[in-house]
Amino acid sequence: LQAFIKTLTGKTFTVEMEPSDTIENLKAKIQDKEGIPPDQQRLIFAGKQLEDGRTLSDYNIQKESTLHLVL
């Protein structure tokens, strides 16, 4: 599935991932794409901060969901 990552500066980019991917995997993909170390990334979806060990499906993240990236 493709999801949108929106930063506080208003920049939006897309990442490809599977519902079974962990938040940790997602942070690694963001690092590959944007060069931001995972330990500096905080991802917010539906008002909740996402925990590394959980999966996208745990948070009911669907295709074309928008996640907010806070540094």
Results as ranks from 00 to 15, higher is better:
P37L: 06
K27F: 02
F13N: 00
A46N: 15
T66C: 05
D39I: 08
Q40T: 09
D39V: 07
E34R: 06
K27P: 00
H68A: 05
F13C: 02
T9L: 08
K48F: 09
E18W: 13
E24L: 15
E51P: 02
P38Y: 13
N25A: 13
L56P: 02
G35Q: 05
T12P: 04
Q31E: 10
T7K: 05
Q62K: 12
T22H: 03
L67I: 15
T12I: 13
K6F: 09
E34I: 15
L67G: 01
D39K: 10
L67S: 01
I44T: 11
D32C: 07
D39Y: 12
K33T: 08
Q31H: 14
I44D: 05
K33R: 12
L67Y: 03
L69T: 00
T22V: 04
G10F: 04
E64P: 04
T55G: 03
K63M: 12
G10I: 03
G35R: 04
L56T: 03
K29H: 06
K6C: 11
I44W: 15
Q2M: 14
F45S: 03
T9A: 11
Q2G: 05
D21E: 09
T55M: 10
E51T: 05
P19E: 10
L8Q: 14
G53N: 12
T22D: 02
Y59F: 04
K33N: 05
D52N: 11
I44H: 11
P37H: 11
M17F: 15
E18Y: 14
G10P: 02
G10Q: 03
I5D: 02
Q2I: 15
E18T: 12
F4L: 12
P19D: 10
F13W: 05
S20G: 11
L71K: 05
L50W: 03
P37Q: 06
S20P: 03
D21A: 09
Q41P: 01
L26D: 00
E16T: 11
K11N: 08
E64D: 15
F4I: 14
I36E: 01
G53M: 08
Q41W: 05
T14C: 08
E16K: 08
P19V: 11
A3E: 03
Q40E: 10
A28C: 07
K63H: 15
F13R: 00
I36F: 13
I61H: 05
I5H: 02
R54L: 11
L69G: 00
S20W: 14
V70G: 04
L69S: 00
I61C: 03
I61S: 05
Q41A: 04
I44Q: 07
A28E: 09
L26P: 00
S57H: 10
S20R: 07
T7E: 04
K6H: 14
F45K: 03
K6N: 07
T12R: 07
L26F: 03
I23C: 01
G47V: 02
K29V: 07
L43A: 00
D52C: 04
T22M: 06
S57F: 09
E24F: 14
Q2C: 10
Q31I: 02
T66A: 05
